[in-house]
Amino acid sequence: MLRTGSPAPELELADTEGRTVRLAGFRGEAVLLYFMRSTSCPVCRRHVRDLAEHPPGDVRVLVVVPDDRATAAAWRAKHRIPFPVLTGRGSAPHEVIGLSRALFGTVQRSGSVLVDAEGVVRHAHGATLPTGSYDKEGIATAVAALHAPA
């Protein structure tokens, strides 16, 4: 898993329209990436709803799913997800940040990464069970620290 204070990895993703989205393209603004276990995971969907109802300040939220683009697009439309929903492009984004599959490769791990405006990881959290993957308090603390005087 990524460590706080480390540079954010070079992630190249695709949105539900097929456009390329690069994490480096968000320099100048803070970004929270929420990595879902899958679009069919009810716990992960509840976490995304919470992010929509209680957005983390002025931070851009991106939802990353391991599903294919068509599945991601249908899920986003059906549930009216207000954030970009992204899939891998050429690599598995979950793997790139250290959320590799657990339990002999059968369970996709989920979690979140907060990247500041300069491209530095300010919060990284992951879990095998989706009930532990959304560290709402940790995210809120890290977002507040983005705006704290130096």
Rank of each mutant, 00 (worst) to 15 (best):
L11G: 02
A8P: 12
D58V: 14
E17W: 02
A144M: 12
P130F: 03
H79T: 10
T141Q: 14
A14D: 01
L32R: 04
L146I: 09
R109P: 06
S6R: 11
E29Q: 10
A144C: 04
A14L: 06
V107C: 07
G57S: 08
R27P: 09
T39F: 00
A8T: 08
R46K: 14
P130K: 11
G132W: 08
T71A: 12
A127D: 12
A150E: 08
M1S: 13
L103P: 15
L99Y: 02
G98M: 00
F35D: 03
G90M: 05
P56H: 13
F26Y: 10
A77I: 09
V143L: 11
G18M: 00
V64A: 04
P66Y: 07
H123A: 10
Q108L: 07
L114T: 06
V61S: 05
P56T: 13
V61W: 08
V21S: 06
L129R: 15
T16C: 04
A124Q: 13
P56E: 11
A30P: 01
H54E: 12
P7M: 06
E53K: 10
A77F: 08
T128M: 11
V59S: 13
L99H: 05
P7R: 10
R37T: 05
A24S: 14
G105L: 11
G98L: 00
V120H: 07
L2E: 06
L146M: 01
L86H: 03
D116L: 06
G57H: 05
H123S: 02
R101H: 12
A70N: 09
D15C: 04
R22P: 06
I81T: 03
H79F: 08
K78G: 02
L32M: 08
V121M: 03
H47F: 06
A73P: 00
I81V: 15
P93A: 09
H123C: 06
V85C: 05
P93D: 01
L13D: 00
A124F: 15
L62Y: 09
V31I: 07
H94G: 14
V115N: 02
S6Q: 15
A102H: 13
D67G: 03
R101M: 11
G25N: 15
A52M: 00
G98V: 03
D58W: 14
S100R: 15
G126F: 01
M36L: 11
Q108I: 04
R89N: 09
L114N: 01
H123V: 03
D58R: 15
D135A: 03
H54V: 13
S112R: 14
H123W: 06
V59M: 11
A14R: 12
L114E: 00
K136F: 14
H79D: 06
P56F: 14
P93H: 05
A8R: 08
L23D: 10
I97Y: 14
H54G: 12
L129F: 14
G25F: 10
A74E: 11
D50T: 13
E29Y: 03
T39R: 05
A24Y: 12
